[in-house]
Simulated assay, not measured.
Amino acid sequence: MAASTDALASFEEKWSLAHPELPLALRFVHPQARPVVSALACLSHEVGLAAFRVVEVEVATGKLRWWAEELALLPSGQARHPLTQVLAGSSAMKQLPADTWTALIAGAFAQRDAAPARGLPDLIAGHARFHEPLGRIESAIYPALRRDIAAQAGALSRIVHESARLPECLTSERLPLPLDLLARHGLSRSDLGVASAQRDAALREHFAALWEAMKLLDSRGLSPLAAARLAADLQRCRRAARAEKPLESSAGNLDRLPLSALWACWRAARRMQPSV
């Protein structure tokens, strides 16, 4: 158990650097539920890394196949990875249908093969293929969680982060902006790699649209972690939509949280009672 605890702490440290809402949310989680909440968050980051960030196709495919095998072992208690071992200790996690974990990996693979989205609704729907299974898994911890809202919030957050890392996405041949937005601003895919007034205008419109979409979400259906992330993403998008240099604004705010995230996290923790 001590080894698993130490390993979990190392994953928390790793992902807290990229996602400051994680350590914030863990402060408000009941001690009994904390390891499971943390392990699931870190697992989603690890799988998401292979789905969205690893450039080499063979490496990403190998990682996702390994995770598929590992998650298949979770219900039987034979998991090998520190994160899945922690999850296997939760009766709520072990009782999830096997196809829930399968759907998570299928959604991750879908991100590797995703075609450019025609519009923002298509872009959200594409990312939701990964976040809908996560919502189903998370609802085993938080019975009051609204899966549909969690999936939408997760998909929108993913788009915010992907857009803020535009150069990196382009290098890995991903397009985090919809095609109709590019058409309205007379931009090609290659144009996005070059700073210009047209690109800045397109990004401001993009972040404004994301801000409007997130404002429609009912945060009362979210876990503390997701509520904190939504509050942070709302401010990131609002600032980027008004910035002279929206890409620099969005990228520069990924590692910091506004005070509104603390307030949102606290309120969500009061509403959501974990069951592990």
Rank of each mutant, 00 (worst) to 15 (best):
H19Y: 06
R53Q: 15
L179T: 06
V54P: 02
L104H: 05
V194S: 00
S139G: 01
K94Y: 08
N253W: 03
A228H: 14
P133K: 10
L187V: 06
Y142V: 02
A150E: 14
E244S: 14
P258D: 05
H131L: 07
G77C: 06
H45S: 14
A144C: 05
L210A: 00
A115G: 06
W67N: 09
R270W: 12
S90Q: 08
A232Y: 00
A151W: 07
T100G: 08
E212M: 04
Q111S: 15
K63A: 12
I124K: 12
E46M: 09
A228R: 13
S219Y: 13
A110Q: 14
S172T: 01
A164P: 15
H45Y: 14
W66Y: 08
S172N: 09
G126W: 03
R271Q: 04
E162N: 09
R189A: 05
R199I: 10
R65E: 07
A213F: 12
L182W: 04
A251N: 08
P167W: 04
V55D: 10
L104C: 13
H206C: 05
D180M: 14
Q32G: 00
A264D: 04
E244Q: 15
L40M: 13
T100V: 12
L187S: 11
L145M: 10
M93N: 06
H30F: 01
A79P: 14
F52G: 08
L87E: 08
W67Q: 07
S4Y: 02
A201D: 09
S38I: 04
A18G: 12
Y142T: 04
A209K: 11
A151Y: 06
T61F: 00
L254P: 11
E58Y: 02
G89C: 06
A164L: 00
A128P: 11
